[in-house]
Amino acid sequence: MIRTLPNSPAYTLGFKFYVILYFSFLFAPLLVTCILAFNDSQFPALPWKGFTLDWFFANEPDRVGIFHDQINLTSIWVSARVAFFVTILSTLVGTCGAFLFEQEEFRFKQALYFLMITPLVIPGVILGISILIFSNTLGVFFEESLGLDVRLFGPGFWLVVLGQFSFISTLVTLIVSARLKKFDRTLEEAALNLGANRFEVIWHITLKFLSPAIISGAAIAFLMSFENFNTTLFLVGPEATLPINLYLQVRDGSTPVINAISFLLIVCTSTVAVINLTLSRKQR
């Protein structure tokens, strides 16, 4: 059954085979996508027609590589900007949340904690439509009562940022809380005894201790935002983010340019993920 018990060869071999099968299942679609980004063919399919970097660098009438594909480049830039603001906002608010739930005492703390968790169990599509409806209600209200036409309330860049922020903050709160739980509070008491005020203690001592978790939370927030689809789908305006833009292309047929973008995404996210995992392992 387990390491310490005698196992029949059939059991060990069978189990190994199952696990190998499982990992092939996990990686097959990603590997195939990456390999076909380098196939010298007009379609992302076999047969193999030779190695090429055209889908990255070419700029010919029948072949436009990703680095010359204005629509896709624009959407990458939109996604990067969205992810930047989501990361800043959710890291700030998530860290506040961690301090609030770990170090402060107040009435209805349990209820508020429950409320803070809920975004994780609300389907992303529902988050998207309810934020869309609410901002529309606010927009109508401001227009009718104050005569202001506030662009901010329509679908578009800032609504996407807010929609993603609404659930990514929960993740950051949980990540930072997990580290704050391990914090030795006598360090704070010592600093207070030595004449620091509460804010100085937080700034010089607690935040220093939390910084690995905050960085890791920010990295996760950036990735989650960069690839979010469900919530964004309903809030997006004329500026499509990368996943929305890719979805529209995949739905209507595909070119190896999509493979090239996927390849870049896989390489970048894996790098960030591996760095993040290695760092968080070292922490422990």
Binding site: A45, L223, Y247, I258, V272, L277
Partner: peptide, 28 residues
Amino acid sequence: TMLLLLPFWVSELVRVYGWMILLRESGI
């Protein structure tokens, strides 16, 4: 464990697209 986590950092869209390339009529 790390190997297990890796594919899920990649956008869901890319993963679904991979399956489409594998399974469609002209697929792998």
